[in-house]
Design a protein around this nucleic acid. Structure first.
Lengths: 346, 346
DNA sequence: AGTTAGCACTCAGCATCTAAGAGTGCTAAG
DNA sequence: CTTAGCACTCTTAGATGCTGAGTGCTAACT
């Protein structure tokens, strides 16, 4: 089953050429452009072999060959050289990320996705940091007037959530302070999804006398738990797919764009790759979701202080410049990780 | 220049029919479907007149007529009956808005745009409430630890902004409190865009001794001023334009979608209509921005406590179901206004 | 054995053509 | 003023033919 050297070179040539031109590539093109030193007839025979083995396919009887999904997979796994970016390229990415100027994590994320899509010329998507995976750091209640207060919830990784609540029962500042410090003590260091309803109930029991204010204060926690269970997905360069010749028909565009509008679906797709570290390439039907089985999805995870926060990726037709996209993605994630870990450290 | 009754009816028939079918409508269709009691020949003559007067046009020599921009304008201004929604329709919109369950203004806005696009089957857009038009209500500084504090800025209309700042100089709680109450006193009731740099500088002079902490605290104000000058624009149903036959070519789709990606441009477009109360219909070249001169934009403003907060609108091809869209938009804005004013009142 | 040249064959893409159908404008009669 | 009738125009869809790119096969060559 292993390909000999010559077949590898021919497969490589076909894939590379097709990625560049989007056209089926014929034996003559391979013979001419890549110095293999063989005639087109020989290459024709080899290509016929490769087709039989499933690495190439013909869109119609008398056209050149295009890589099959298996062909792309082999290319990614064995043929493609790891393209390191030049220093200028890295610098340019770094500059447009503008990480030095940003403070808020959402801002950084939203900007990263823009950069990624414009550099790769594909659609890119990034899962915002998962709130429920952040750890509780502290909670404060800030009285606004007699009847209302502001609950502020702070986690590591730069999340601050707040909510105006109504204080049905007026507590003295001292009492309020007592409640809050009790909560802080109990919750410190837990991740948000460890703050289960049962834990909340337990705390409620302990503090039964201040139940009413607790009720209100915990609405924030519970709502956060519910709403933010699905972190936001940021999209960039959705219109880039329109530049790809494989999306010249309006129906296909429609299909993709409708998918892009369903944030929850995108989230599911990205979440699948949350566990694996490093870069993951899913080609065609390797993707579970039906609507993207004609696409390739390349993802990587980004971290803060060694903890995986979310997934960032690029989606496009299976004919994609794998080398370039992977190199860019790697560079971007590197920089993200570094900045997030140093800057937002608490 | 005034159209006689018969011409009006014919124009009405042509516009209504074309809105429904997207095809050019011929004299025979008008004669048949609408009980005008005239033969197609007579109607042909009248249509020729209407064309000469600029209300209709022919896409090519031997096709039916389609309304010109002027024709649509006349339809909207004089022919269209104000379509009141049925109670079920109003209820259905109300339910899907789910205003009773929402708390945060951004959430309400983001949901409203979804509802609007799905009900009208067009792309809809809504300008988030303009932060700079909200009035300052109070500011607090919440010490987190020795070196850091959380600045919280609260306006009416439900805005809460916050930011972690570093306190270079440790102030005693009492001093901090003093600074903060001074600021609150000075700023209360001002809109954010009245908090100009010169005012800030003035305050700085007054408080020169606490300059350093002020410096940090005001970063929040200044950044808010800058960043949020452009409120967010929320989009819904961007792919709906793909259902419209006028967007069957990929280039046009590309043009529109690229426009949709430029938030700042959308903002400008919406901002133009911020001053006018009620529903504004801009047809074709009545829009200033070039890229939407083949479209119609219908907008309305929404308010909180009598103050205009932002603009919500629907965009689509000039062939649009004006009656329906206007009715829906009116209903939606009504409900928004009512909920915002009662719920978020402070 | 493996490689290569040559040749017949296939097929998408493009342009050209035709027929059908829809709709108009004009004219003359009601 | 209205209408029937007719010639004319123009789009659309389907059919036809041509061209170029590319293949598969065979036979000759190394």
């Amino acid at each position: 089953m292993e390909l000999n050297e010559r077949k590898k070179r021919i497969l490589h040539a076909v894939v590379a050429n097709h990625i560049k031109t989007a056209d089926p590539v014929g034996s003559r093109t391979v013979a001419r452009s890549y110095r293999i030193g063989l005639s087109s007839a020989t290459i024709r025979n080899e290509m016929a072999d490769l087709e039989e083995m499933g690495y190439l396919k013909q869109p119609h009887t008398s056209a050149g060959r295009i890589p099959s999904q298996k062909g792309y997979r082999y290319y990614v796994d064995h043929l493609m050289s790891a393209n390191r970016l030049t220093d200028e390229e890295r610098l340019s990415i770094s500059r447009s990320l503008g990480l030095d100027k940003m403070r808020e994590i959402e801002q950084i994320i939203a900007n990263a996705v823009k950069v990624l899509s414009s550099v790769t010329n594909q659609t890119s998507l990034i899962m915002g940091p998962q709130f429920k995976k952040s750890t509780f750091q502290q909670m404060r209640i800030l009285p606004l007037d007699e009847k209302r207060g502001l609950v502020v919830l702070i986690t590591d990784s730069g999340f601050i959530k707040n909510k105006v609540i109504e204080l049905n029962q007026s507590l003295s500042p001292a009492e309020l302070h007592q409640v809050v410090s009790y909560l802080n003590q109990k919750l410190y260091g837990l991740t948000i999804d460890q703050v289960t309803t049962s834990l909340i109930n337990e705390l409620k029991r302990d503090l039964f006398r201040r139940l009413e204010i607790l009720e209100q204060a915990f609405i924030l926690l519970e709502e956060s738990l519910r709403e933010e269970q699905q972190a936001r997905v940021f999209l960039g360069g959705t219109t880039n797919i329109l530049n790809q010749p494989e999306f010249k028909s309006v129906e296909k565009v429609h299909q993709m764009l409708s998918l892009f509008e369903q944030e929850s679906l995108l989230f599911e797709i990205l979440e699948k790759n949350l566990s694996e570290e490093g870069i993951v390439v899913k080609i065609g039907t390797e993707n579970e979701h039906e609507d993207i089985q004609e696409c390739t999805l390349i993802t990587a995870t980004y971290k803060i202080n060694q903890r995986i926060l979310g997934t960032v990726g690029v989606i496009g037709p299976t004919r994609m410049d794998y080398q370039w996209v992977i190199a860019v993605l790697r560079c971007l994630v590197d920089q993200l990780n570094r900045t997030l870990s140093s800057d937002l450290q608490t």
